[in-house]
Amino acid sequence: MGCFGFLKTVMFIFNGIIFLAGAGILAVGIWVKVDNGSILNFLQNLDGAPSELKQVLNVGYLLIALGSVLMLLGFLGCCGAVRENRCMLLLFFVIILIVFIAEVAGAIVLLVFKGLVQKVITEVGVKVVEGIRKDYGSNKDITGLWNTTMETLKCCGFNNYTDFRNSSFSKNGTYPSQCCKMSACNEGSATAANIPGCFPALIALVEANSVVLIAVALGIAALELTAMAVSMTLYCQIKAKST
């Protein structure tokens, strides 16, 4: 097997795995959306499962989108390599390139415009706090989403427990049980003051796992560069054969 045949085989196997993974993710996403009644009943029947667990059904749209993109990439890569179709290989290269450029641009924006990003996050935080005070305790979906977030990250509110002041839930200075570790507590509770907000908790979690996240990001970037290099090499060799 020559270099050309080896690259075709690698391209086929690699994108075949991507296609199958995308098909699996797409199937799960469709199942979650189509048969959400059965899934919801299953989740509710789990021993000790919180009622907010049903929020997982909203992930179905994300799974459908991700699965569709992966299937498209896998199809273009496989067929482009096997059928030696330059158009498919070029389209595969362009899609990967767009994703790669978007990732690099996002990283540059975060590094260069760190102050602007922090300002935007602060402005978003104000809106989030307004949403908490308006909907938490009165809107079942919003309440469930925040309860799940706070239980997962062991946090309280967006910034801290004071985000619940004047909310539909907070009456006489009472705060959610997630802010108190045991049960609903009052504003004067020392426990509530010691529990971090969800945004600071998320930042701390990212910083604690920064090495792993950087390694994963570099690994993904390396795979994308390799995929682009292989697809373009095949493209050029196929073009050379046809002339």
Rank of each mutant, 00 (worst) to 15 (best):
G106M: 13
I25M: 11
L43Q: 01
V109R: 12
Q55S: 02
A102S: 13
S177P: 05
E123H: 08
A23R: 10
T191W: 02
G74N: 15
F93K: 05
C155A: 05
I121K: 09
R83S: 11
N15K: 02
L218D: 07
N209E: 09
V56W: 00
D47N: 04
G219T: 12
F100L: 08
G48V: 01
N45L: 00
A184W: 06
I121P: 03
L40F: 01
R165W: 07
C198Y: 07
T243G: 11
L73V: 14
E207R: 00
C155H: 07
L213Q: 03
A201L: 05
Y61S: 13
G24F: 11
C3D: 08
K154Y: 06
M88E: 08
M232P: 00
V216G: 02
K134M: 05
V126Q: 11
G137D: 12
L91E: 01
G188L: 10
G125Q: 14
T149M: 06
W146R: 05
I132A: 03
L43G: 02
G80L: 03
A240T: 13
A105T: 15
Q55G: 00
K181L: 13
G157F: 01
A208N: 03
S167R: 09
G106V: 13
S68E: 15
G131Y: 14
T233N: 07
N36R: 09
V112A: 09
F100A: 08
M71D: 09
Q55Y: 00
G22I: 05
G5V: 08
A23S: 15
F100R: 02
